[in-house]
């Protein structure tokens, strides 16, 4: 029996729905439903094993505003984000520029060495640095003493006034190489003729870097800053392994504080509320990314 041809319109709708459904189902299971649960949970007081959830309205959010550690964690996230942009993207650009134009011999070897920390998991990186920074037997303390200097009395990771900066340094050690490779790829895509044209126009060296190189890799720099920002807000494993958020919460960040509240202190509702705040920050950053990439 000959089938009547279906109209293109209904056929199209069905196809769209069929094509979209796997993504929608997966997104629902792994994003939308958990987000909804966290939003819901943030309005209650309960622990992981609580039989009863007590509705508390917005008081978990009020509690966050009055929680000193929440603000320390947020401040630390910002320190890591801003510090990482300066150190990782900044140094990464510097190293990439040196490798791109300055060093011709052993370029690949150097690039590999600088990139290497990136392929180590953050947990392993943390453990390696725990040994290096150990106040009693760590090589760094011996080195500092051999140079005639005094290492921090409370240890590099034990002194609350410097520990977050030390963690920032470790993170930068790990990721600067990645930024360098990313930016180096961008630099190498800049046509040589542009530099030659610029040389004829009187821009060489730093002036060429400023007027030709930086604008040419602008989009890559935006991506690098975004990757770093997102990474800075979701940093967890490195801090968990090196300081566990200590000494006395000095290196707590939002993600470790969420984990701590949810799983160690049994304040799951409160952890949900901080998660929602972190989510709001993430959405804000995503919006900023969309805006900046549209402009570019």
């Amino acid at each position: 029996m000959p089938q009547r041809p279906r109209t293109a319109r209904s056929d199209g709708r069905l196809t769209y729905a069929a094509m979209l459904s796997p993504a929608i189902v997966l997104l629902s299971i792994f994003v939308f439903v958990p987000v909804a649960l966290v939003l819901y949970g943030s309005l209650f007081r309960f622990g992981l094993t609580s039989a009863e959830w007590t509705f508390v309205g917005l008081s978990n959010y009020v509690r966050a505003m009055g929680d000193g550690v929440f603000w320390i964690a947020l401040r630390n996230n910002i320190i890591i984000v801003v510090g990482s942009i300066v150190l990782q993207v900044g140094f990464g650009t510097l190293l990439a520029a040196v490798l791109d134009r300055g060093i011709t011999v052993g370029n690949t070897v150097l690039r590999t060495i600088i990139f290497a920390p990136m392929v180590i998991s953050s947990v392993a990186v943390g453990l390696i640095w725990l040994i290096i920074l150990d106040p009693n037997v760590g090589p760094l303390v011996s080195l500092v003493k051999a140079m005639g200097l005094t290492p921090p009395r409370l240890g590099f990771l034990g002194d609350p006034s410097i520990s977050i900066w030390v963690v920032l340094g470790i993170a930068s050690w790990q990721y600067t190489g990645f930024m360098m490779v990313l930016i180096l790829a961008g630099l190498q895509a800049v046509p040589k003729e542009l530099y030659q044209a610029a040389a004829l126009d009187g821009a060489t060296g730093l002036r060429a870097f400023w007027h030709i190189t930086l604008p040419a890799i602008r989009n890559i720099l935006i991506v690098a800053v975004l990757i770093t920002t997102v990474g800075g807000f979701k940093v967890f494993d490195l801090i968990f392994v090196t300081t566990g958020g200590g000494p006395a919460n000095a290196t707590q960040v939002l993600s470790t504080w969420i984990y701590f509240q949810a799983f160690n202190l049994g304040n799951t509702g409160y952890a949900d509320a901080i998660s929602v705040i972190l989510l709001a920050i993430a959405v804000l950053l995503g919006w900023a990314q969309l805006k900046s990439s549209r402009r570019a």
Partner: peptide, 16 residues
Amino acid sequence: FEDAPNATAPELSYVM
């Protein structure tokens, strides 16, 4: 105590 006890792992104290 040792220097910087807050940055010293328990295992290291056993070894000492």
